[in-house]
């Protein structure tokens, strides 16, 4: 049956880094991507020069553009596509999946309108139950360069964590496990909003005090949302919470950070986005989270601030001023909210 072949669905930078790790670990990998050009290049040059030129892909990684070939040949499949594309990909993939498949996604985002998490989308579009999420402080370029890194896999099924760990663990890449899928997914998605804010703060010329303020309060509001959705508070102290938040917010490599930086420098959002080759999840996530926070309702001032900058054209400086101004009220609001 060839079930030892591992599937990787999505040929962006992180998908390529995951394929690279799997290949380096000696696994045969079927690596799906939509872009036929990139696919051919990978099979010929062993490199994905468009998205992650640093990675050298082992010969047993076979790139393909046929999604239907993934299900029958791979029992474990990593899904690494942009969040807005996951539903369609999962639906197509789902025609060739059964109850024995293990799906591990590394998609950061929440579905607009429905506020569904990526694992819920997989659950709806396929018959699979063994679903997990991989998330952590993993900048694809650094992983490709074999910098010591770690990640977390969350699943309700111990089997999923074990499978992911056995496949990915190697010298320089540690894999932790937990069973808080909701907390891991929310931490991974919401941190992209904070990364935009971090880029802005640095772009405005602020230093580490401001960054620390932003990260700490940012984590608080992410955790607040997580708890409301049934997550475990401890998850936010882990790799997929504070870990991912730090890596993303401190890294000028991160796409979302770059958006924030350039907004602070006075560029307009459409101009920034039109020049990017890869998806910056943070923009979409800001809108979704802001709406979700208002529906629940949950107090997420930083997210609201980023929302106003992105979609209501407020100047980053003004928003920051107003955020600092409401601090005292924030404190009062929080003590009231903790009563519940």
């Amino acid at each position: 049956m060839g079930q030892n072949v591992v599937g990787v669905v999505g040929g962006g930078s992180w998908g390529t880094a995951i394929a690279q790790i799997l290949g380096d670990n000696g696994h045969t990998v079927r690596f799906w991507m939509r872009d036929a050009e990139v696919c051919r290049a990978i099979n010929q040059t062993r490199r994905n020069s468009k998205y992650l030129p640093q990675a050298i892909l082992a010969p047993q990684i076979i790139a393909t553009t046929e999604l239907a070939s993934i299900g029958p040949s791979c029992r474990v499949i990593f899904l690494v596509v942009p969040s807005h594309g996951l539903r369609a990909v999962a639906r197509e993939l789902g025609d060739h999946l059964d109850g024995a498949h293990i799906l591990i996604h590394a998609v950061k985002g929440i579905e607009p309108g429905t506020y569904k998490l990526m694992s819920q989308i997989l659950r709806e579009e396929t018959c699979c139950r063994k679903i997990g999420v991989l998330s952590g402080p993993n900048l694809a370029k650094e992983v490709a360069l074999h910098h010591p890194s770690a990640t977390a896999i969350a699943s309700r099924f111990a089997e999923v964590i074990e499978a992911g760990r056995n496949l990915l663990w190697c010298h320089g890449f540690r894999v932790y496990g937990n069973d808080d899928v909701v907390g891991t997914e929310i931490g991974g998605s919401a941190k992209n909003v904070m990364a935009i804010a971090a880029g802005m703060a640095q772009g405005l010329g602020f230093g580490m005090n401001t960054m620390a303020l932003l990260l700490t309060r940012g984590l608080t509001e992410i955790a607040r949302l997580g708890l409301a959705k049934g997550a475990d508070a401890q998850t936010f102290q882990g790799l997929s919470g504070i870990g991912d938040l730090m890596a993303t917010c401190f890294s000028p490599l991160s796409r979302n950070y770059q958006i924030g930086w350039r907004l602070a420098k006075g560029e307009a959002l459409p101009d920034i986005l039109s020049g990017m080759t890869q998806v910056a999840e943070g923009v979409r996530t800001t809108r979704t989270l802001h709406e979700l926070a208002r529906t629940i309702p949950i107090y997420m001032p930083i997210t609201a601030g980023v929302y106003r900058i992105l979609f209501e054209k407020e100047a980053p400086k003004d928003v920051l001023e107003s955020l600092l101004d409401v601090t005292r009220n924030v404190y009062e609001f929080e003590s009231a909210a903790t009563i519940k």
Binding site: G94, D98, G99, A100, E125, T126, C127
Partner: peptide, 15 residues
């Protein structure tokens, strides 16, 4: 059947 209406071989859940 799954939510998309596809038939499921439920034995596969138990392998």
């Amino acid at each position: 059947h799954d939510r998309m209406g596809r038939p499921i071989d439920t034995r596969r859940y138990l392998l």
